[in-house]
Nucleic acid binder design. Sequence first.
RNA 1: GGAGAGGUGGCCGAGUGGUCGAAGGCGCUCCCCUGCUAAGGGAGUAAGGGGUUUAUAGCCCCUUCGAGGGUUCGAAUCCCUCCCUCUCCGCCA
Length: 427
Amino acid sequence: MLDPRLLRNDPQSVAVALARRGFEFDAAGYAALEEKRKALQTRAESLQAERNQRSKAIGKAKAAGEDIEPLKEAVAGLGAQLDQAKAELETIAEQLNDIQSGLPNLPDADMPDGADEDDNVVVRHWGEPPSFDFEVADHVAVGEKLHGLDAATAAKITGARFTIMQGGVARLHRALIAYMIDKHVASGYTEVNVPYIVNSKSLYGTGQLPKFGDDLFRLAEPDDYYLIPTAEVPVSNMVAGEIVEPERLPLRYVAHTPCFRAEAGSAGRDVRGMIRQHQFEKVELINIAHPDQSDACHEAMLASAESVLQDLELAYRVVDLCGGDIGFSAARTFDLEVWLPSQQTYREISSISNTRDFQARRMGARYRDAETGKPRLLHTLNGSGVAAGRALVAVLENHQRADGSVGVPAALRPYMGGIDVIEPTVE
RNA sequence: GGAGAGGUGGCCGAGUGGUCGAAGGCGCUCCCCUGCUAAGGGAGUAAGGGGUUUAUAGCCCCUUCGAGGGUUCGAAUCCCUCCCUCUCCGCCA
């Protein structure tokens, strides 16, 4: 949510800023609605003030043993007027609120302009895409050869966009997760284990609702809950409604969770393999920061995620998302894209965003300002460190060998019982 | 699931229809005292919103005692619904 004061005082500048991300904001219409709101609110509040005053007078008269009947008669007409004024105000307030909750975040000044992902700016590359002296297989073929990936059986059990991992591949997946969590904990993150099911309020707080409900799996019964699309939702909402003492900042959390996404609207995309699943696992980094710290936190999170890929010996590039590609809640986002030999291209494996006070305002997440003692909105940041499913894909593809085996990066060997290669198993 | 208790400010905790945004305590801030430390004395200290305004200063006003309805001139206090927490029982990983 954007600062309502900014929307009121300078809707035109908001419209200009949001246009950079291809969002059309009707500043004039909003301003007109605001004018109405102001008039209605002033009227409702002055009626309320009058009634409060009169009621107080009745109280005093009664305490003094006076006859209060005439005083009560004098208030008689006020109630109906007040109710009507309140109802009118509420109608307008709802309209304003609907508009506000649908507005995406203001982009940072540094965010690149652009219409779509083709306009994202490549910041840097790390590592060389590996060369192979045999014909590379994609991760599906590699996984099948290892008897480690089985989409068909998962489809029987559930449906499309699910996978069964087994044997060495399942263990590799688990190793990736354990390694990543341990690494981030070693660099100062606090490991948290959080609910994978959340209520709508939490999803509103991080910005998935009300606009993006179609992307979510919803549990209608026995409660109106949702499966999380990312750990960002439960972890960020840990500070919802809280006032955090400044000396605790930044809060740095790492969480491993499954993520559930309906993938509405992506039918036909990445249908083969594990790139785009309804269920995948992710190690997520969350920072809850003082506004002065948030840029530094953003950089540090990016570095943390990068070092995972470096440890895994995977070539990647860092991309600065442009206005046409950046997410609803983010002011600035860096993606990590890992090299996939089968596709001869870089694919997203991590997305690291600073939402500034956008989510904090929706969640009511604040810190106490050391100087003024007043509560101020926090900044929240989230980033994958990294997506486990896609990391598995990247390792299978980049470390595959001609004989169908897959090399285990040194960083993962302690988590793989010391083995340095996954061999095809006989069923 | 059954029975009971409870949800009040940063925290703890009083408060069963009016003068209560709310006693008291803790914490915090400032001042005084004490040659350090500890203790002591005094003052202050909720949040959100609107109007006015160059202003997140001041002033005026509204709202908020788990959430939402209701009764009433007036609700933290009474009634209804829901949510959450705790205790005991049941069940269960």
